[in-house]
Nucleic acid binder design. Structure first.
Lengths: 207, 207
DNA sequence: GTCTATACGGCGATAGAC
DNA sequence: GTCTATCGCCGTATAGAC
């Protein structure tokens, strides 16, 4: 075992774990090597530099994170159903990757232009944007025309829902500290919250 | 001019600027010295280490950020008024310090235990927590008993409102990228959003 | 208090053996 | 493809002159 592709994958997994918990600047290549069960020289063999390794990790994460969300927002379903779908997909994803929002936000903050460029080469940004602006906006306009919802811009709709979904994970240490929701209490709090989040969100848009 | 306290303050201001835009790990003491118009040796003279300097900066920022928000949440006013107050205070503060959420979240993520300890020595966490749990929860319970609002836990109330307020700033590069709201368009988007944010939030809690 | 110059350590990168 | 050993830079910390 431990052929080349398996080793490369192990390094990538280890790098993801370390980058996600320490940030790229705070991460040490030694720690990545330890976590992968190899030595630093192999990181160089496979990825050449820490910079390139971090880009590979970011690519993998961003590629898994964004497309499904955009798809759910733009699915050909009633607005209420899309909201429930986004909530469902996102809560499931975040349950498995709770520290990922902090990582993504941290990287985009530390190296905004580099990361933006990276995402642009990775995802069909323009197409995604158009889908949101056309498809989602049309659905929202139809709802408001029918008097079932107040008028709202698609951009705001997306930002507001994503704020509720993502922020608690990114701010977890702060919430634990200020509100005294440590460990399991925090998890329980989020689970309960997630169950009623879609309804609350839709109510905020009631006519 | 340039007596000792002025120099120390200039270093602190410079450090804040650099830490906020690069994160502590990404910051170089040389850049802080340049921005303060002094040399690296003086940083050591006043603050001994980069670590201590970062703690001083964090203290100043956290001390300015949290107390006013907690006070607004717990003010002796109707719930709707408190919400509008929190929104007003927070939007004004964030307008002047738009990169601060990213900094705070980043530090609490990179060094959660150290930062938590620091905040505990800085703020009366337990008292703040009790105020939220007692005072705010009582106000929310009264509203729901009167049929003006659905029942909600104070913790959730706080997290949901803060999510809407803070997340767009922390996620600014991502929002600019995905939704195509660059520069001024982003500012305009937020200004418009902030104006109706309190009402939308209260609607989400309608009975 | 403020500067110049330097010591020191750590980390990423790499050479070279197997 | 994987290892051991080592290099060289860069950033923080510090000594010492003014």
């Amino acid at each position: 075992m431990a052929d080349d592709t398996a080793t490369e994958a192990r390094i990538l997994d280890a790098a993801e774990a370390v980058f996600v918990r320490r940030g790229v600047d705070g991460a040490r290549t030694q720690e990545i090597a330890d976590e992968a069960g190899v030595n630093k020289a192999l990181l160089h063999y496979y990825f050449r530099t820490k910079e390139r390794l971090s880009e590979a990790v970011f690519r993998r994460i961003a590629g898994a994170f964004f497309p499904r969300i955009i798809a759910a927002f733009s699915a050909d379903e009633p607005v209420a159903e899309r909201v429930r779908r986004v909530v469902e997909i996102e809560t499931e994803f975040l349950r498995r990757h709770p520290f990922l929002p902090g990582y993504l936000l941290g990287e985009l903050r530390a190296r905004p232009e580099a990361m933006k460029t990276l995402v642009r080469t990775l995802l069909p940004i323009d197409a995604m944007r158009e889908t949101v602006r056309q498809n989602l906006q049309a659905a929202l306009d139809a709802e408001s025309a029918a008097g079932r919802m107040r008028p709202v811009r698609a951009e705001r709709f997306v930002v507001d829902l994503m704020s509720w979904l993502v922020f608690p994970y990114a701010a977890r240490p702060m919430i634990e500290l200020i509100l005294g929701l440590e460990g399991d209490a925090f998890e329980a709090f989020l689970a309960e919250r997630n169950a009623t989040l879609a309804d609350g969100f839709l109510r905020s848009l009631a006519p």
